[in-house]
Design a protein around this nucleic acid. Structure first.
Lengths: 169, 169
DNA sequence: TATTGTTATACTCTATAACTATA
DNA sequence: TATAGTTATAGAGTATAACAATA
């Protein structure tokens, strides 16, 4: 380990960034000029943390969180996903899917139905009450997205959606 | 609970989506037409999961993951963050910061230095070896981002960065 | 032999409360 | 009285291995 140096210094070699002498008001502003703050990985992580927090908050009165909501939404989509397919799409482990599906099935929101083409697999479909629950929940996630993206115009939101979709699909 | 219905049906009421009779090749294609698949919350979650996985993989030979990398990057930024400020910026609990900083300090990559203006707080700065480690790690995260965004042109990447930054800052 | 769903289990991540030293 | 960092702990989320039924 190197010997201890003065304090609050920028240390040896080339200075990583020109920086105000030290503290200003709050730190956010200083940090936003940092290379890390412009990495897409960092920006998406931050967007996801804050978006999730807001969505979970708005969903809380329905006793739902974003993960179970996503499962319910897929069961309501008319695409008849099997548990395996759903796990692949939502980046969920098979064992996680079991737990999520169990809870939604206990609530009477979805059902496991046999797949006529493969008796090993189970197809997820929503019940009538599950579809009503989904309608309420989708309204809340729509509001969460509206609030999360309030800094963008409608055209910019579509643009963001389009760019992200091209990245992940 | 409602009575059981045929199987793989779209269920009662208005059909949520027009859908191919049933199974096609793989499920991804079917699912991408779903409303959930166009929610920004879902897209960022997916981008984050896959981006993180790739970045962690590329960082593994340096014995780093994205979280500790972010802490190291901030310590190398010249902005002299305190632990509290860093936790706020990276969406980390104060106790999580302690653990992350402990490990990086044990490796000799960063140091806690006293804040001359407030003896309660500790300022994080990188050591010389920490800066070298960061340089190697940053090269790997740059490659991860390059690979993650390969579907986009350079202009589109900047556009995505800009839109995300406006959302989260 | 490989795959779907399941169970049990362990591991990581995240959050909470209580403590200390400073402010 | 409030805040920064710390510790211990609990809870949620995620991952792994083994198993039964089916392909």
């Amino acid at each position: 380990m190197p010997p201890s140096t003065p304090a609050a210094s920028t240390a040896s070699g080339a200075a990583p960034l020109s920086v105000q002498p030290d503290r200003a008001g709050d730190a956010e502003g200083r940090f936003q000029a940092t290379p890390l703050a412009r990495e897409v990985a960092f920006l998406t992580a931050r967007a996801r943390v804050r978006g999730n927090a807001l969505a979970n908050e708005l969903l809380s009165d329905l006793d739902l969180k974003v993960r179970p909501f996503a499962v319910l939404a897929m069961a309501c989509s008319g695409t008849n996903p099997s548990q395996r397919e759903l796990g692949d799409f939502l980046d969920l482990d098979p064992s996680q899917v079991v737990t999520l599906v169990d809870r939604l099935e206990e609530r009477g929101a979805i059902r496991r139905e046999p797949d006529p083409r493969d008796r090993r697999s189970k197809i997820l479909v929503a019940t009538e009450s599950g579809q009503q629950l989904h309608a309420q929940a989708a309204e809340r996630t729509r509001k969460a997205e509206e609030q999360t993206l309030q800094a963008l115009t409608s055209a910019e939101r579509d643009q963001l959606r389009e760019l992200l979709a091209r990245v992940v699909y």
